[in-house]
């Protein structure tokens, strides 16, 4: 009986992994190509959630689900054009400061416009309900998030590994100078990747708004966990992030099963352990420009 309960936590950890993955994936993309550690990523996630709350009453939840990530991606293009672009080649500490400031501006901006109190938002009635599989329970909405996360990962994988666009992006990660020498301007690719990465954060915001509090600090809350996932997976590794997200979800679930107070601490312990044993992360690759 005990073992079944434990198994239930492990399977639930997969769903929670999808939740972390949606945020970590964009973070990893922007870091891989531009070398920018985007501390404002949580801010874009929060903007996505707030847009969902604003748009849903007008164009429905499905409409908001499409529109909100696109709007956040457009915001990403603007931010890339005026801010990120200046820091691709500079000391990472500068972009760290920039995005840290940006995160604070976004959080405080949301607080000034909407107030600090959480905005009411619920799962639309048509997506409510649970699926019972034997003794296990899965909310339909969470299964939906899981499916969308898989679709988002598949689409990102296809773009990065199966298109000519992706080939340039991957070459740019390894050796931007060589890409330039071949006469390919990397700039539009950088913009597109920033839009994609930030748009994924917006997507996560829309999807999680119905099941977690929509308040200004929601981005800061989730960002650290997303970073842990990226670091455990290995910087620049596509599959590493996916593997790490699932691992974090499962480890957290098992920890809460046995010793609930350490639920959040467990993921940091996991990170510390991975860094000690394998400093570049589980599936991290050597990237020339970061050596």
């Amino acid at each position: 009986m005990q073992l079944i309960f434990l198994l239930e936590q492990v399977l639930n950890g997969l769903l929670v992994g999808a939740y972390y993955l949606l945020i970590a994936l964009g973070l990893s993309l922007i870091f891989s190509l531009g070398g920018i550690v985007n501390l404002a990523h949580g801010g874009f996630y929060a903007v996505g959630a707030y847009l969902a709350v604003l748009l849903a009453p007008r164009i429905g939840f499905s409409g908001a689900f499409v529109a909100s990530p696109i709007l956040v991606a457009l915001l990403g293009i603007v931010i890339e054009r005026f801010f990120f672009r200046r820091f691709y080649r500079s000391d990472p500490i500068l972009s760290l400061l920039l995005t840290f400031g940006l995160a604070m501006v976004i959080e405080q901006g949301l607080r000034m416009i909407f107030g600090a109190a959480p905005l009411p938002f619920a799962i639309p009635p048509e997506f409510r309900g649970q699926v019972l599989l034997g003794d296990f329970i899965y909310p339909r909405y969470r299964l939906g998030i899981f499916a969308i996360a898989i679709a988002a990962v598949a689409a990102t994988w296809f773009i990065v590994y199966r298109t000519s666009f992706g080939r340039v992006v991957r070459a740019g990660v390894q050796n931007p100078d060589m890409v330039g020498a071949l006469g390919i301007p990397l700039q539009p690719y950088m913009t597109a990747v920033a839009a994609l990465g930030v748009g994924l954060a917006g997507l996560a915001g829309v999807l999680l708004a119905p099941i977690s509090g929509v308040h200004p600090a929601m981005g800061a809350e989730i960002l650290t966990a997303a970073f842990v996932v990226v670091v455990i997976g290995g910087l620049g590794s596509f599959w590493g992030v996916i593997f790490a997200a699932v691992l974090v979800g499962v480890v957290r679930g098992i920890t809460i099963y046995f010793y609930p107070p350490a639920g959040e601490a467990s993921i940091y312990l996991l990170m510390a352990l991975v860094l000690l044993l394998r400093p570049r992360g589980l599936l991290g690759e050597r990237i020339q420009k970061f050596e």
């Binding site: 309960f5 239930e8 929670v16 509090g213 957290r252 099963y257 609930p260 107070p261 601490a265």
Partner: peptide, 20 residues
């Protein structure tokens, strides 16, 4: 009685324990 860290956002593992 489960202690929940103040920065926890996902309650699903706790809810499963309650259900059990």
């Amino acid at each position: 009685d489960d202690l929940v860290p103040t920065d926890a956002t996902d309650f699903s593992p706790y809810l499963l324990k309650i259900r059990q």
